[in-house]
Amino acid sequence: MDTYYHPKDLAHFADMGKGNPELWEKFMAYYGAVFAEGALTAREKALIALAVAHAVQCPYCIDAYTQACLEKGSNVEEMTESVHVACAIRGGASLAHGVQMRNVATKISM
């Protein structure tokens, strides 16, 4: 099936290093350090990444971090809650901007 996002393309991610190896190496070193065990566990970081993947709606990230979450011991119950966190923040961000709407409306209304 022809599709703009093909799951197999994720395996070609490293091809991005061909255009500028130095920046690629720096990004990957940073990426690896971010996801290492730290004050947050690798499991917790994968759950955050899954939520962000849904917020930015990256299909590759959703594929990769669904697998990563399961392999780090999270279950679908926890992963669903993390997606709801993304959903709540996205929805909440829209609603919170309602304050701007109200400010403008108040300013220009009698």
Binding site: T41, A42, R43, Q67, L70, E71, K72, G73
Partner: peptide
């Protein structure tokens, strides 16, 4: 055992959970 086609998690944190 994983409930699906993926690798098991690290043993120690899974044991804690």
């Amino acid at each position: 055992n994983p409930v699906g086609a993926f690798l098991p998690p690290a043993q120690e944190p899974q044991e804690r959970q």
